[in-house]
Design a protein around this nucleic acid. Structure first.
Length: 368
DNA sequence: ATGTCC
């Protein structure tokens, strides 16, 4: 094998982080990887670039999925007219959400086809890092016909949840790594099927986790909500006779997608254009993508701002993040311009915009 | 990213 083809979806590759591009090139050299795609939100990760898709004809590479198997975005429309959403009251009521969920975890797990007790201590919790739950309002309906046909309401309060499989996915990758240190397994081998079965459980758990998180948030505010989409951006799935790994890449072949900007920027509800998807491995950006590393963001921003100043954003959004380090790491300044990411995807013919959403209240954590 | 490093 001489290495995979690399396709980068961007109007300005020169502005991409050389480290991320180098990480992408490294994975393209892996024996068994045939095709690699970098998306406009590409950024450096811990060894593996984030915002990328990798296709192998017969092998599974657990490290290309990473530890947060099943991580993704869910989007709910609530029954509350957004004009009735009161920020101060909502902020007061959103407490206890980092604590273990006191609902019926086993019933929820079995409803999702998962074993009782599986990861139940973490079920319904957001976690750390870039995870969040965010109340939003529709800023602009871009494609009114499509928006109406979907039965969506522009005057409703919306809720977006970004979380994953917490300790469960981590344990699955750890178990893989401890096995024998090999990077990949034939999907049909015993090691491959064992990993894939565990992976599929973690994906189902992560979908359920986002659902429980949304339930908890809505319960605190006395809202009912309907899930409009759930999109997983860390996974490996059977695809065109091989295995498609997505590392921070939304699927373009599974219906509507929401692509969030930073907490200080808009999010975009988009429709993938499936017939153009093959060249991008049926994958899309999963967010804005980091511009600065966590360390850089903390170093630069903690000199310029107090945490309280970062609890309000330029778009008028409010932030609940009582972790003093995280509030700097996840500041809007640390992220790329989501507008440019969306434009790149549109210009590549991969998406059509349906609506944009404005952040109202971003919940990260109450605990420090 | 992480029932998170002593």
């Amino acid at each position: 094998m001489t290495g995979a083809s690399i396709r980068i979806i961007s109007s300005d590759i020169g502005r991409m982080d050389p480290l991320a591009l180098d990480q992408l090139a490294q994975t393209a050299r892996l024996e068994g990887i045939d095709r690699v795609v970098g998306l406009p939100d590409l950024h450096a990760g811990r060894g593996i670039a984030v915002g990328a898709a990798f296709w192998s004809p017969d092998m599974v590479f657990p490290h290309l999925v990473g530890s947060d198997i099943g991580c993704g975005m869910g989007l709910w429309e609530t029954d509350l007219p957004v004009r009735k959403f009161k920020l101060d009251a909502a902020e007061r009521k959103l407490r206890g959400l980092d604590e273990p969920w006191d609902g019926d975890a086993d019933a929820a797990l079995s409803g999702a086809g998962l074993a009782p007790g599986l990861g139940d201590a973490a079920l319904g919790t957001i976690g750390g890092g870039n995870h969040f739950a965010e109340f939003q309002r529709i800023e602009q309906v871009i494609d009114g016909d499509r928006f109406d046909a979907l039965g969506f309401r522009a005057d409703a309060l919306w809720l977006m949840v970004h979380s994953g499989s917490r300790g469960l996915g981590q344990a699955i990758l750890d178990a893989w790594t401890r096995r024998d240190g090999s990077a990949a397994a034939e999907a049909a081998s015993e090691a491959g099927t064992t990993y894939l079965a565990a992976h599929d459980h973690a994906v189902a758990w992560a979908v359920l986790n986002r659902d429980v998180i949304a339930r908890r948030f809505c319960e605190k505010l006395g809202l009912a909500a309907e899930r409009k989409l759930d999109i997983c951006h860390n996974s490996v799935t059977a695809h065109e006779g091989g295995w498609l790994h997505r590392k921070g890449a939304a699927p373009a072949d599974k219906g509507l997608v929401v692509i969030p900007g930073s907490r200080g920027d808009f999010s975009y509800l988009v429709e993938p254009i499936v017939d153009r998807g093959a060249e991008a491995l049926y994958s899309l950006a999963h967010g804005a993508g980091r511009k600065w590393s966590r360390n850089d963001a903390h170093g630069r921003l903690s000199k310029r701002f107090r945490p309280a100043e970062l609890e309000r954003t330029a778009l008028g959004g409010r932030v609940i993040c009582e972790d003093r380090r995280l509030i700097f790491e996840e500041a809007p300044q640390a992220y790329k311009d989501i507008g440019l990411v969306i434009r790149d995807l549109e210009e590549a013919g991969l998406i059509r915009g349906i609506a944009s959403l404005r952040p109202l209240l971003s919940y990260k954590t109450r605990r420090t």
